[in-house]
Amino acid sequence: MKSRGYEILEHPADLGISAHGESLQEAFEEAARGLMAVILDPATIRPHRAMPVSVAASDPQQLLVRWLSEILYLYDGQRFPCAEFSIHELGPTWLVATVRGEDLDTARHHTRLDVKAVTYHQLDIQEGAGHARVRVFLDI
């Protein structure tokens, strides 16, 4: 297995993302990559413009949901699909990141799926020495 990456979990009624990395930071970044790949083909998104993102939450679960909800909002509310995600600081209840993407161009960006929301359904965060894994399900 690669040291970091994500896989899309497809069940009849669900679509989930399982993401892993050497740190929780990497796993969170991979989860964001997975989310964007569900929405559109990431190869079509050019990382032209940087956007600062900071998220605060009341616990790590909410932090993960809010982080991914932020990426979803940038796409769905700001029409700004992202291709690159770097988290600079990650605490139990906050994170500071920079994401890179570009303005939505419907000629090049073809939506694969409308994601309605990031859910708490079977949400899981595992962190060990040199390894972290998160799992999250999306309402589609």
């Binding site: 009341s58 679960q61 909410q62 809010r66 909800s69 909002y73 769905d76 509310g77 309605k116 929301a117 990031v118 859910t119 708490y120 359904h121 949400l123 309402d139």
Partner: peptide, 30 residues
């Protein structure tokens, strides 16, 4: 559409944070 999805997302958090105040606990965060 996205408006309704976001209303739910927003208020899930509002309610989660509010539950402590009303001494409610749930078996599933959704």
């Amino acid at each position: 559409r996205g408006l309704g999805h976001q209303v739910c997302t927003d208020y899930l958090d509002v309610m989660h944070d509010g539950m402590k105040r009303y001494k409610i606990s749930v078996v599933d965060r959704q």
